[in-house]
Design a protein around this nucleic acid. Structure first.
Length: 778
DNA sequence: CAGTGAGCGAGCTTCCGCTTGACTT
């Protein structure tokens, strides 16, 4: 039996460390926390100085008993959990639960997993820091009290099984607030003037823009008209060097943001892929708020940069964290070995690794150097000047490997010639005359604030100091699982914009159409999310305040430094909080976002919207009328807060009969996958953009015929290419006959998109499924 | 599968932060 037992939090870490230490050390993992508050309401005795009841959860029993056995046999137990609040508490829980002695227990910390760092730590052990432990207990108890007192208020005043908490409720609030900002927003139009000039050489083209915008067409038109006889000259020419520096290596939150933007990963996906890379020894720990790199990492990066790109590409940099709540128990996320530019593994692993490698390497590289040129072009008939910008890269530096994206990357606005305006300018001199090739004034609209993506919500939460690297992904899942928020893509609406053009001395104007407001994988609040949020804001503003966490974190820090007593802190918080819970439970009205929209034309019946038993709905008529009220569910994308009277009435126009075809009725309705036509037990999706209310008998027949034709072509194709598979139209729509097997087409699949490979896959899946027993009728 | 639309009753739901695992349906 080994003389020393060393306990860390993560098994992958344990494995690495075991390699650094000799045979005298056995390195084991606690798998995170081993003890937690009991799950019942009596976990904390609030009338007895917040005494806590802890237990070892069932799934941790095996770990604990194993550690207990090993600890008994060891001469010395080294508690090496992370150097932060939670880590200290883990050490303390281990100490208590394993029944350790003071003499044989040592607490050590290190924030990089390297041999020298660990040996140094072992030479400088300390005791458990109880101030830090108390700060963790205060954090834990406060979160439990908030969560377990607030949630029941919601069960009573809104709906059972709902939840509220210090972190999740603020996340929901951010999304609700943003949605309202967007709803309130009115776009302002202005005309942006862009011109293309050339020098005496007609091939030397460059673009210039008017810094100011015109708010109405007449002004824009006058400017262009004034330009017809005008002469244009370079009034001034300025060239300045500029530099761009690389970004810091990844933390959890920045990794999630970049992986979302560059790879399209959800935050959960990023974390599971990163976990696999970590367990395979490819990268350092992926749940971190630190941008720090260890000395060995700095050396590794330096060596790699010098050998792969040359000495002038290297620049040693230390980054400092920006987020206030950072605890920095770990390094930044980086590759374990810098000389491995790529790795094996699946596609997702390879791409995420490459992103991490590039970002870490770039962080130790030189600035990129540019030369920026600004030319101002005078217009002889006007006061205003047009501005042309050119940029030349003199040295690529870190851009050789990595380019950081921004949230706006995908939102480039359409414009006349669709380039960036940062291109190369031709050689110009001051006073030189230039020729106008063409000029345009395009109507542009101001944009509302952007809806949150998962990743941009994480960014915001981190800025506010809310949540931790280990909880960002779970929090995003929680608010979706509770139904407060949905991640959706929504179609935009067409919008017209005007363009005035000046080409070859003649003016023309035209109107174009663009799509605006289309969203891809964005977070939208649901009606229930809105009701819960408004209720919490009204009655518990202190808790869902964006600064609540920052304030209590400051107090936790004071506890950690021994400047404040942790139960005193909890007393001063809990007294008023609990009082609010009591009075709200007693006196507050049931929360609702019911709205009256008006009276139904003709009948005069009340039209209202509210959340019903099955979700948001419109009701026409009163519940106690002798004639039963009529109901209709809101469609995806519609909300109680914003639905109009007309939209609400429209919901009752479906399902609608649109005539007969082949002796069978056709009905238009809206289902879960969008609007469809039902005919003879078959379903036909409407083409995008066609309003279900606009469907006529003729257009319905046309849609059915087109779909059948497409299916038929597909059937023929598959049949021709593969004699053993073909699609047939059955009683309930198309199915695939695959040899002797009948294969089901998964829901939502367009028959036209089916490939032979799909069929093979589905057939294999169908085989695996156990045969369902025939069920008798109830 | 293409839509519904409550109301006594019993007991349940719920937090945040560490970490990885998984009886087979």
């Amino acid at each position: 039996m080994a003389k020393n037992l060393l306990i860390v939090e993560s098994p992958a870490k344990a494995k690495t460390i075991e390699g650094y230490l000799g045979k005298d050390f056995l390195v084991k993992s606690s798998y995170g926390h081993i003890r937690d508050l009991v799950k019942t309401d009596d976990a904390i005795d609030t009338s007895n100085n917040f005494t806590q009841r802890y237990e070892v959860p069932a799934e941790k029993k095996a770990v604990v008993s194993e550690l207990k056995k090993l600890a008994k046999a060891a001469e010395t137990v080294w508690l090496a959990s992370d150097e932060d609040r939670e880590g200290e508490a883990i050490s303390w829980h281990l100490y208590e639960t394993l029944g350790l002695d003071d003499e044989k227990t040592k607490r050590i910390v290190f924030h990089e997993i390297t041999k020298p760092a660990i040996l140094r730590a072992i030479e400088t052990p300390r005791g458990i820091d109880f101030n830090l432990v108390n700060a963790q207990q205060a954090r834990r108890v406060l979160d439990r009290l908030v969560g377990f007192e607030l949630s029941p208020v919601l069960w009573k005043k809104v709906k059972p099984s709902l939840s509220a908490g210090r972190v999740q409720s603020v996340a929901v609030r951010l999304i609700v607030d943003r949605e309202r900002e967007i709803n309130r927003f009115t776009a302002e139009a202005a005309f942006r003037v862009v011109a293309i000039f050339h020098t005496d050489n007609p091939k030397e083209l460059f673009k210039a823009e008017l810094p100011k915008r015109f708010t109405d067409v007449a002004e824009a038109e006058r400017f262009l008209t004034d330009c017809i006889p005008a002469r244009f000259a370079i009034n001034s020419l300025e060239t300045k060097p500029s530099k761009r520096s690389p970004a810091a290596p990844f933390t959890t939150s920045t990794l999630q943001q970049e992986a979302s933007r560059k790879l399209g990963f959800s935050v959960a996906r990023t974390m599971t892929v990163a976990q696999r890379l970590y367990e395979a020894g490819r990268i350092t720990y992926m749940r971190t708020d630190s941008v720090n790199l260890s000395d060995t990492a700095l050396q590794g990066a330096e060596q790699e940069i010098r050998s792969a790109y040359g000495d002038k590409y290297h620049k040693r940099r230390q980054y400092r964290t920006k987020s206030a709540g950072a605890q920095e128990a770990h390094e930044a996320i980086r590759p374990t070995y810098f000389d491995q530019h790529t790795i094996g593994g699946d596609n997702a692993e390879r791409r995420l690794y490459e992103l991490i490698w590039k970002r870490a390497i770039a962080s130790q590289m030189s600035e990129a150097e540019f030369e920026k040129t600004t030319a101002k072009i005078g217009v002889s008939t006007r006061e205003e000047e047009l501005v042309a910008n050119g940029e030349v890269m003199r040295f690529d530096g870190f851009l050789k490997v990595y380019f950081e994206s921004t949230d706006d990357d995908d939102e480039h606005e359409p414009n006349l010639d669709n380039d960036t305006g940062n291109a190369l300018l031709p050689p110009l001199t001051k006073g030189q005359q230039v020729q106008l090739k063409r000029m345009s004034a395009t109507e542009r609209f101001s944009r509302p604030p952007a809806r949150y993506t998962e990743a941009s919500l994480v960014k915001k939460l981190e800025e506010l100091g809310i949540g931790r690297p280990s909880t960002y992904a779970p929090t995003i899942s929680t608010i979706q699982n509770r139904g407060y928020v949905v991640k959706e893509s929504r179609d935009g609406k067409p919008r017209e914009y005007r363009i005035v053009e000046l080409v070859g001395g003649t003016m023309s104007s035209l109107v174009k159409t663009e799509i605006t407001g289309a969203e891809k994988s964005k977070l939208f609040p649901t009606d229930i999310g809105v009701v819960v949020n408004d209720f919490l804001v009204e009655h518990f503003n202190g808790i869902v305040d964006f600064n609540f966490t920052a304030r209590v974190e400051k107090e936790f820090d004071e506890i950690a430094q021994g400047m404040k007593e942790w139960t005193a802190m909890l007393h001063s918080f809990y007294g008023p909080f609990h009082q609010e819970v009591e009075t709200t439970t007693k006196h507050a009205d049931r929360a609702t976002n019911e709205r009256e929209l008006g009276e139904e034309p003709g009948t005069g019946k009340r039209v209202s919207v509210r959340i019903g038993r099955f979700g948001p709905m419109v009701q026409i008529g009163a519940t106690d009328d002798e004639e039963k009220p009529r109901y209709a569910s809101l469609r995806p994308g519609q909300m109680i807060e914003t639905i109009t009277f007309e939209e609400a009435l429209d919901l009752f126009k479906l399902p609608k009969k649109v005539g007969e075809f082949e002796g069978k009725e056709m009905t238009v309705a809206v289902g879960r996958f969008g609007p469809y036509i039902r005919h003879d037990n078959a379903f036909f999706s409407l083409p995008k953009g066609l309003d279900p209310l606009d469907v006529t008998t003729e257009s319905a027949i046309e849609i059915i015929r087109e779909k059948r034709q497409k299916d038929k072509e597909k059937i023929i194709k598959i049949f021709e290419e593969n004699a053993d598979a073909r699609i047939e139209n059955g009683r309930w729509g198309p199915f695939i006959r695959f040899g002797k097997q009948n294969v089901k087409i998964p829901k939502g699949t367009e028959v036209n998109d089916i490939t032979y490979e799909d069929v093979v896959k589905w057939a294999a899946e169908d085989e695996k499924k156990p045969k369902k027993k025939a069920r008798g009728k109830k």
